[in-house]
Amino acid sequence: MTTPVLRTARLEFLPYRPEHEDVFVALLRDAEVCRWMGQDRVPEPQLRELFRAILTDVYPQRRFDVWGLWLGDAYVGHAEVKPTGNVDGHELVTALAPGHWGRGLGGEAVRGLLRHAADNLGLTEAYGMVGAGNTASLAMCERLGFRHVRDVVAEDGSVTKLLVIPTRDPGGEGSV
Protein backbone atom coordinates (compact mmCIF):
# COMPACT_ATOMS: atom_id res chain seq x y z
CA MET A 1 0.00 0.00 0.00
CA THR A 2 1.35 3.43 -0.83
CA THR A 3 1.23 6.30 1.61
CA PRO A 4 -2.23 7.82 1.13
CA VAL A 5 -3.26 11.45 1.25
CA LEU A 6 -5.10 12.06 4.54
CA ARG A 7 -7.34 14.94 5.55
CA THR A 8 -8.65 16.26 8.84
CA ALA A 9 -10.82 19.32 9.43
CA ARG A 10 -7.90 21.69 8.81
CA LEU A 11 -4.90 19.62 7.78
CA GLU A 12 -3.89 17.81 4.64
CA PHE A 13 -1.30 15.03 5.01
CA LEU A 14 0.58 14.84 1.72
CA PRO A 15 3.29 12.34 0.84
CA TYR A 16 6.45 14.34 0.25
CA ARG A 17 7.43 15.39 -3.26
CA PRO A 18 10.85 16.65 -4.40
CA GLU A 19 9.74 20.28 -4.20
CA HIS A 20 9.08 19.89 -0.44
CA GLU A 21 12.75 19.35 0.42
CA ASP A 22 13.50 22.90 1.58
CA VAL A 23 10.53 23.14 3.97
CA PHE A 24 11.32 19.69 5.42
CA VAL A 25 14.94 20.72 6.02
CA ALA A 26 13.94 24.07 7.55
CA LEU A 27 11.54 22.37 9.98
CA LEU A 28 14.06 19.79 11.16
CA ARG A 29 16.85 22.39 11.44
CA ASP A 30 14.77 24.57 13.76
CA ALA A 31 16.38 24.59 17.22
CA GLU A 32 13.04 24.58 19.09
CA VAL A 33 11.67 21.69 17.03
CA CYS A 34 14.84 19.68 17.67
CA ARG A 35 14.73 20.50 21.37
CA TRP A 36 11.20 19.19 21.81
CA MET A 37 11.82 16.17 19.59
CA GLY A 38 14.71 15.31 21.90
CA GLN A 39 17.37 15.38 19.23
CA ASP A 40 20.41 17.39 18.32
CA ARG A 41 20.29 19.63 15.29
CA VAL A 42 21.33 17.53 12.33
CA PRO A 43 23.60 19.16 9.72
CA GLU A 44 21.69 20.32 6.65
CA PRO A 45 23.41 17.90 4.22
CA GLN A 46 22.31 14.94 6.37
CA LEU A 47 18.72 16.21 6.43
CA ARG A 48 18.76 16.56 2.66
CA GLU A 49 20.05 13.00 2.42
CA LEU A 50 17.29 11.85 4.77
CA PHE A 51 14.66 13.62 2.69
CA ARG A 52 15.92 12.00 -0.49
CA ALA A 53 15.87 8.61 1.26
CA ILE A 54 12.17 9.12 1.99
CA LEU A 55 11.57 9.55 -1.74
CA THR A 56 13.95 6.86 -3.00
CA ASP A 57 13.76 4.21 -0.25
CA VAL A 58 10.95 4.69 2.29
CA TYR A 59 8.15 5.22 -0.23
CA PRO A 60 9.26 2.70 -2.92
CA GLN A 61 9.97 -0.01 -0.32
CA ARG A 62 6.78 0.85 1.63
CA ARG A 63 8.79 0.92 4.84
CA PHE A 64 6.35 3.22 6.68
CA ASP A 65 4.03 6.15 6.10
CA VAL A 66 5.43 9.69 6.20
CA TRP A 67 3.83 13.00 5.26
CA GLY A 68 4.23 16.72 5.14
CA LEU A 69 1.43 18.49 7.01
CA TRP A 70 -0.25 21.36 5.19
CA LEU A 71 -2.70 24.01 6.36
CA GLY A 72 -3.97 25.44 3.09
CA ASP A 73 -0.85 26.30 1.12
CA ALA A 74 1.37 26.52 4.21
CA TYR A 75 3.67 23.69 5.28
CA VAL A 76 3.14 23.35 9.03
CA GLY A 77 4.88 20.12 9.94
CA HIS A 78 5.78 16.49 9.55
CA ALA A 79 4.03 13.23 10.50
CA GLU A 80 4.84 9.51 10.47
CA VAL A 81 3.41 6.15 11.48
CA LYS A 82 6.27 3.67 11.70
CA PRO A 83 7.42 0.57 13.55
CA THR A 84 9.11 1.51 16.81
CA GLY A 85 12.24 -0.03 18.23
CA ASN A 86 11.15 0.56 21.83
CA VAL A 87 8.29 -1.97 21.88
CA ASP A 88 6.57 -4.32 19.46
CA GLY A 89 4.27 -1.87 17.73
CA HIS A 90 3.97 1.34 15.75
CA GLU A 91 4.87 4.85 16.79
CA LEU A 92 3.16 8.10 15.85
CA VAL A 93 5.55 10.96 15.13
CA THR A 94 4.56 14.59 14.64
CA ALA A 95 6.56 17.79 14.49
CA LEU A 96 4.97 21.19 13.99
CA ALA A 97 6.68 24.41 13.03
CA PRO A 98 6.77 26.73 16.08
CA GLY A 99 4.60 29.35 14.37
CA HIS A 100 1.75 26.84 14.44
CA TRP A 101 2.02 25.68 18.06
CA GLY A 102 -0.85 26.26 20.48
CA ARG A 103 -3.63 26.12 17.85
CA GLY A 104 -4.77 22.52 18.31
CA LEU A 105 -3.03 21.29 15.16
CA GLY A 106 -0.89 18.75 17.03
CA GLY A 107 -3.92 17.00 18.48
CA GLU A 108 -5.67 17.14 15.13
CA ALA A 109 -2.64 15.59 13.44
CA VAL A 110 -2.44 12.79 16.03
CA ARG A 111 -6.16 12.05 15.65
CA GLY A 112 -5.65 11.83 11.87
CA LEU A 113 -2.75 9.43 12.38
CA LEU A 114 -4.83 7.31 14.76
CA ARG A 115 -7.66 7.08 12.23
CA HIS A 116 -5.16 6.01 9.53
CA ALA A 117 -3.56 3.47 11.88
CA ALA A 118 -6.94 1.89 12.63
CA ASP A 119 -8.66 2.13 9.25
CA ASN A 120 -5.77 1.56 6.85
CA LEU A 121 -3.13 -0.32 8.85
CA GLY A 122 -5.38 -2.42 11.10
CA LEU A 123 -3.58 -1.34 14.27
CA THR A 124 -5.40 -1.53 17.59
CA GLU A 125 -2.94 0.67 19.47
CA ALA A 126 -0.12 3.09 18.78
CA TYR A 127 2.78 4.49 20.76
CA GLY A 128 4.26 7.90 21.24
CA MET A 129 7.59 9.06 22.62
CA VAL A 130 7.55 12.46 24.36
CA GLY A 131 10.38 14.14 26.21
CA ALA A 132 9.65 14.42 29.94
CA GLY A 133 10.16 18.20 29.77
CA ASN A 134 7.75 18.69 26.87
CA THR A 135 4.80 19.62 29.08
CA ALA A 136 2.64 20.94 26.22
CA SER A 137 2.89 17.69 24.24
CA LEU A 138 2.41 15.57 27.36
CA ALA A 139 -0.75 17.55 28.22
CA MET A 140 -2.03 17.06 24.66
CA CYS A 141 -1.35 13.32 24.89
CA GLU A 142 -3.22 13.14 28.20
CA ARG A 143 -6.22 14.95 26.68
CA LEU A 144 -6.22 12.51 23.76
CA GLY A 145 -6.19 9.48 26.07
CA PHE A 146 -2.58 8.26 25.93
CA ARG A 147 -1.40 6.37 29.00
CA HIS A 148 2.12 6.13 30.35
CA VAL A 149 3.89 2.80 29.74
CA ARG A 150 7.36 3.55 31.08
CA ASP A 151 10.18 6.05 31.13
CA VAL A 152 13.06 5.54 28.73
CA VAL A 153 16.31 6.96 30.12
CA ALA A 154 19.05 7.80 27.61
CA GLU A 155 22.77 7.51 28.29
CA ASP A 156 22.90 11.27 28.92
CA GLY A 157 20.22 10.93 31.62
CA SER A 158 17.44 12.53 29.61
CA VAL A 159 14.01 10.97 30.08
CA THR A 160 11.45 10.23 27.39
CA LYS A 161 7.94 9.07 28.22
CA LEU A 162 6.75 6.00 26.29
CA LEU A 163 2.98 6.34 25.89
CA VAL A 164 0.29 4.15 24.33
CA ILE A 165 -3.23 4.80 23.05
CA PRO A 166 -5.91 2.63 21.47
CA THR A 167 -6.46 3.61 17.86
CA ARG A 168 -10.19 3.57 18.44
CA ASP A 169 -12.15 4.85 21.41
CA PRO A 170 -12.65 2.35 24.26
CA GLY A 171 -16.23 1.67 23.18
CA GLY A 172 -15.06 0.76 19.69
CA GLU A 173 -17.59 3.15 18.19
CA GLY A 174 -15.13 4.93 15.97
CA SER A 175 -11.77 6.51 15.60
CA VAL A 176 -10.37 8.87 18.17
Rank of each mutant, 00 (worst) to 15 (best):
T160L: 10
F51N: 01
V33T: 12
I165W: 09
A136W: 02
G85C: 06
E173D: 07
V58E: 06
L71D: 10
M37R: 10
R41C: 13
G68D: 14
V176D: 07
H100F: 15
V87K: 04
D73I: 05
I54Y: 14
Q39E: 15
E108Y: 08
L14R: 15
L113P: 03
H78T: 03
Y59M: 08
G85H: 05
T2F: 09
A117N: 07
D73A: 11
L144T: 03
A117I: 01
A74G: 13
V164F: 05
A154S: 13
D88R: 14
E19C: 08
G112H: 00
R63L: 11
R147K: 11
E32T: 14
C141D: 14
W67H: 02
E19M: 10
N120T: 05
Y59L: 01
V152I: 10
L162N: 01
R35M: 06
P45R: 10
S158R: 15
C141L: 09
A139M: 05
A79I: 09
A79S: 02
G145H: 01
D57T: 15
E49S: 13
T2D: 07
Y75L: 09
R10G: 03
A79N: 06
F13T: 02
R17T: 13
E49M: 10
L71K: 01
A139R: 00
A118I: 09
L113C: 01
A26G: 12
W70G: 00
W101F: 13
N120P: 03
V66T: 11
L6H: 13
L138D: 11
L50Y: 13
R10P: 11
H78V: 04
A109N: 02
L105P: 08
W101Y: 13
D156K: 15
G174C: 03
W101N: 07
N134F: 04
G102W: 05
R52N: 12
Q39P: 07
G131A: 13
L96G: 12
H100C: 02
T8K: 11
E91H: 07
G145L: 01
L162A: 12
G99W: 07
G172M: 08
D40L: 02
A26P: 07
R17E: 14
G122R: 13
G174A: 04
P170V: 02
V23R: 14
D151I: 12
V42R: 12
L69F: 06
E142N: 10
V33P: 06
S158G: 10
T3C: 09
C141V: 02
G104Y: 15
E125Q: 15
K82D: 14
H100P: 07
A97C: 12
R41T: 15
R48W: 03
Q39R: 13
G145C: 01
G89Y: 00
D119Q: 09
C141W: 06
Q46D: 13
H20V: 07
D73N: 05
A26L: 02
G145A: 11
T94W: 04
A109K: 08
F146R: 14
G112L: 00
R7Q: 06
A126P: 12
